[in-house]
């Protein structure tokens, strides 16, 4: 769990560093994906798929 907490902290730092980056560009998506790399690959896939379903396709 501490690995996850470290990952969340790093993610927060990423937000601070990249707050001015223009959103929704390819580079921006790559950066977002890299910032979530603290998650194991399988969990990252599930997490991002769940996020898409929730915010783009209607809450389940």
């Amino acid at each position: 769990m501490s690995g996850m907490e470290d990952g969340i902290r790093e993610y927060m730092e990423f937000i601070a560093r990249n707050a001015q980056m223009a959103p929704y560009t390819d580079q921006w998506w790559d950066t977002i994906a890299r910032a979530l790399s603290f998650l194991p690959e399988g969990e990252r896939v599930v997490f991002l798929e769940s996020f898409v379903v929730f915010v783009m396709e209607g809450a389940r």
């Binding site: 707050a19 980056m21 959103p23 915010v55």
Partner: peptide
């Protein structure tokens, strides 16, 4: 769908989802 969202807002939404 979310044209007015900036980087910080989007990242906060991901964190909120987490």
């Amino acid at each position: 769908k979310y044209p007015h969202l900036e980087t910080a807002g989007f990242a906060k939404a991901i964190l909120a989802f987490w």
